[in-house]
Write a protein that binds this DNA or RNA. Structure first.
Lengths: 120, 120
DNA sequence: CAGTATCCGACGTGATACTG
DNA sequence: CAGTATCACGTCGGATACTG
């Protein structure tokens, strides 16, 4: 019995990728890069709430996990471009489903609010 | 975590639901509940790495966001059943895409390891 | 331009003990 | 059985300042 309990989370294929979706800004980064290659500054400007330090951290993580590609141009001033890898592109269907669900979720929240307002 | 309302401003539809997928165990909980209603103890046994305290927190969060339903039976001993709401069921396509991607990701990692081993 | 370096506080997460 | 209550610890993320 105890042994069967130990099988546990291996039965959930989702658990292994939790470390990727768990980052606060990862989904947003992938979303923006899905529309095309972006330089660091461009990405940073699209996400003004993220500090450069944290944006760098997240980008490094996504690079490490193989979802994005970092292309450094040895120029002055320096230029770095970020783009999705094939693995990153494969992630887009997830994002699309998540977007669809986000719409449902938002509508649900609206209905919830309205149902409260309509009470009399 | 700061408030997630800030993210919403940045033109990314995904950002608004980040607070849900960000939880370490939320996806796993939804995964298990997608296979049917479970009692607290059953769920807990499937996820032995999660303490009761944290499992409760996550369940309360998912309940608050409307993804799961908590049914309390006033019995002795107490009995509580968790199940997905319609909104929770609507989330399953996201989970399915994520599972598909997890397989690609895992294979990718394998290939990465193999390519390292094959170097001579 | 594209980062680093450093500090700090808030939060997430786990361990343990207790309860109606 | 299904939780609560505490405590402890590590990490995440933000603010600010600095650099090749």
């Amino acid at each position: 019995m105890k042994n069967y309990e130990d099988i546990r989370i291996e039965n959930c294929p989702v658990a292994s990728v939790q470390k990727i979706v768990h980052g606060k800004w990862t989904m947003v980064i992938i979303y923006f890069l899905s529309r095309g290659t972006l330089r660091f500054g461009e990405l940073s400007r699209k996400m003004p709430k993220v500090t450069q330090a944290n944006l760098t951290k997240e980008l490094r993580m996504l690079e490490k996990y193989g979802l994005i590609h970092r292309e450094v141009y040895r120029e002055v001033p320096p230029k770095v471009e970020y783009s999705l890898t094939n693995l990153g592109l494969d992630f887009l269907p997830v994002l699309e489903e998540l977007e669809k669900w986000a719409l449902i979720y938002d509508k649900n929240q609206d209905d919830f609010v309205k149902s409260k307002l309509n009470k009399h």
